[in-house]
Design a protein around this nucleic acid. Structure first.
Lengths: 222, 222
DNA sequence: GACTTGAATTTTGCATTCATTATTCATTTT
DNA sequence: AAAATGAATAATGAATGCAAAATTCAAGTC
């Protein structure tokens, strides 16, 4: 059925919003950077109208700061804001875990087991980048299994806001081991389909993550 | 100090965003309504540029649906989306309650006691509108006490999304009594500064609220 | 009479233009 | 020389203009 999917048509503003969001998240545009409308217009070859529309959207998302008559800057996330976000994200992860337990199929579990094993392998070999990627993928998979699209989208949007601290969060060996240990416990709870336990574990896992970031933020400022 | 506060300057787009959001939340613009750019421009006496910017922002907030080349409609919230939102809001309320318990001062508690007593009075006299207003105020107060601005803002933005169901949620006498009972228990937990208990209660309270809405949605469609 | 077809009209997306507000930089003043 | 003033320049905010797309509606076909 529906062999010919709708031809996706995006407005320039929508396209720009995505590209700029990527540039901010990937660090091409750094926190605090002034965003010059003329420069970006030249870069993308569009006029100011769609660019300004997308800047307004990014401002609503909290990625850009708009000051009247003074233009746009890439939002500089305050350490306090990060510390406010982590408990929230912890709760969302907890909910995701709880829901995931109620809907988990055998194939879901098998997939998670594979991903988990692979992630642990990367940890054992000290491969930070692929470890991070799988870590992220596992969390996303749990949200997918949870089956609450609004929840997943909300988590995603909060995750984007703290993009700046991703690089800061270089874990010490102890912290890294702690994170892997958290994941081991999470897998145990998943196998038992113990929603309450998984929920609590995921919240604790996020609390640990918050600690890591807090340490990084208080030691060497970004 | 600072007798002359900064003169707040808002762009037309910002002003429009606020006004349109109010119109949608208050029901002046109803869910599913087509939003005609020329009409609204005439209504507010502005050109299309700032109006379009504000529509883009409202679309990002989920209040408006924009279809390429086909204009804007007031977003029609799907029952599934409502059911996805309630567990999320429940978690956020739970977090707010937990945090509030750790920061609650005597004067905070006194204020909540007053509000609660007044709200119960309205319930006893069957005064729905002032009851609702105080109910809302109490929840907002708990978020204020929690001291996490990001959390409060997030809750607020989700609350706005389900504006449409506010009117549906005409409680039956039993449901109304249940809600008041929930609030009684919440006050008890607050007095004892029992964060875990309050957290659980607030989540349950939201679950009840979700039930009321679910009943309304399945019986008579909006 | 219901269903197409296609021109006329309206609406939308984007570029351009104009007015207003910042910013920069040279000049003057202390 | 440092600070203050003001002209020149650049950037932003908003309106207008224009091309492309969608909608409307009347005429034609089955």
């Amino acid at each position: 059925m529906n062999e010919h999917p709708l031809i996706a048509r995006r407005s320039l503003a929508t396209e720009l919003t995505g590209r700029l969001r990527d540039m901010i998240v990937e660090g091409t545009l750094k926190a605090g950077d002034k965003i010059s409308e003329p420069d970006l217009c030249a870069l993308f070859g569009v006029s100011r109208t769609p660019l300004r529309e997308s800047l307004k959207v990014l401002a609503a998302e909290g990625l850009v700061e708009l000051t009247p008559n003074r233009g746009a800057k890439v939002a500089r996330i305050a350490p306090e804001a990060v510390e406010e976000l982590f408990p929230i994200m912890g709760m969302l992860e907890a909910l995701a875990g709880e829901l995931a337990c109620t809907r988990l199929t055998e194939s879901d579990l098998a997939r998670l087991e594979t991903m988990h094993a692979e992630m642990v392998g990367h940890w054992q070999r000290g491969e930070w980048v692929p470890y991070s990627r799988l870590n992220r993928a596992i969390h996303e998979e749990i949200f997918r299994i949870a089956g609450n699209a609004t929840l997943a989208a909300l988590y995603q949007s909060l995750m984007v806001r703290i993009h700046a601290v991703r690089f800061v969060a270089r874990k010490t060996p102890e912290r890294w081991a702690e994170a892997v240990e958290d994941h081991e416990r999470m897998m145990t709870a998943l196998r038992a389909r113990d929603g309450a336990a998984l929920s609590a574990l995921m919240r604790e896992h996020l609390r640990h993550k918050a600690d890591v970031v807090h340490e990084a933020l208080t030691q060497n400022l970004i």
